[in-house]
């Protein structure tokens, strides 16, 4: 039968570097852990079984937080995707749980049928189906692996605080690099190239004028991708497109004035930055733990036409200024 590997609770400098690289979307394709059963510490057949996904960052943080807790770690095959996303996609599932437990010969190592599944896995794992189909008793553990120690100490019980997702400043900031990297992917790279060309054509040979569209775009990306997540609770409104647009207006106007633009150019730069920041800000909904699909869809239908209109008007203003200029 399958070997049972040892999972160390000590993270190495390589693990730390890999985690920070992943925050910048680097090494994604290598961030897959071998699925199966792992030993943490010196488990006995009566030791608890924790379940997780085979995304490297997830696996690393779980084994770190299991330090001092002799246990079994059952790693499901989620194609290297974290627990919550994989549960939503259906790879972190009741079926995979049962199949992986069987393939790993779990019952040959453990004398009980209790599996501790992270609460956010409940989107994909059904406790009553696991009981009916595999005779397993699923206990939903805490959302955050750092609460596992307190959960175990409390006799495998979660507190209300352990069951509620948070979205602190630090939790938001670590997600921003991926947002920025995402704007440099594929066809989106054509936007800055096009804006440099447009600025050069419309700039009458002035470098500052030529830079205006590109600067407005970059400022818009930063306002939507960094300022909006950072200032999320303090930006007015509930819609992310509105929060992003407001951040973009302020940042775009400031940058355009700093470049010494003509009034029309300031208006154009502000509008373009607002449009871009609104779009990028709205995209941050995908990284938050509280936006509903019904809400995002409603917001998209309202925001996308407004964002497109703002970008078109910005372009028209720049062209008008060229002919006046």
């Amino acid at each position: 039968m399958a070997d049972v590997r040892q999972a160390s609770s000590t993270l190495t400098w390589r693990d730390t570097i890999a985690r920070w690289a992943l925050r910048w979307d680097i090494g994604r394709e290598r961030a897959v852990v071998e699925p199966g059963l792992y030993r943490v510490g010196e488990p006995t057949p009566a030791s608890p079984v924790f379940v997780t996904a085979n995304y490297r960052m997830t696996f690393d943080l779980v084994r770190r937080d299991l330090l001092g807790i002799d246990s079994w770690l059952l790693v499901l095959d989620t194609n290297g995707v974290n627990v919550w996303c994989a549960a939503g996609k259906g790879t972190f599932s009741t079926k995979e749980l049962i199949v992986r437990a069987a393939k790993s010969n779990l019952s040959g190592h453990v004398n009980h049928r209790t599996l501790i599944v992270p609460q956010l896995g409940a989107t994909g794992v059904s406790a009553h189906e696991a009981r009916q189909l595999g005779d397993y008793r699923v206990i939903f553990g805490p959302i955050r692996s750092r609460d596992i120690r307190a959960f175990v100490a409390a006799g495998m019980k979660t507190t209300p605080e352990m069951r509620v997702v948070t979205f602190t400043f630090a939790e938001r900031i670590v997600l921003t690099p991926v947002e920025l990297v995402g704007t440099l992917r594929g066809w989106k790279l054509l936007i800055p190239v096009g804006l440099i060309a447009a600025g050069w054509l419309l700039g009458h040979g002035s470098l500052a004028a030529a830079c205006q569209p590109l600067v407005a775009y970059i400022v818009g990306v930063l306002a939507g991708g960094v300022l909006t997540p950072a200032l999320l609770p303090w930006l007015p409104g509930r819609g992310f497109s509105l929060k992003g647009a407001l951040a973009g207006v302020v940042a775009g106007a400031a940058a355009s004035l700093a470049l010494g633009s003509e009034p029309l150019g300031v208006a154009a730069g502000t509008l373009l930055a607002a449009s871009v920041a609104s779009f990028v800000g709205l995209n941050f909904t995908g990284a938050t733990p509280f936006t509903s699909p019904s809400g995002v869809e409603k917001e998209l239908r309202l925001a996308l036409p407004a964002q497109a209109a703002a970008a078109v008007i910005a372009g028209v203003l720049w062209i008008v200024q060229y002919f006046l200029g």
């Binding site: 997830t58 943080l61 549960a87 939503g88 948070t166 938050t288």
Partner: peptide, 13 residues
């Protein structure tokens, strides 16, 4: 890239 284990604070699905 969501750091889900740490609190899985990202990307709902």
């Amino acid at each position: 890239t969501a750091p889900m284990a740490e609190g899985e604070p990202a990307a709902p699905a």
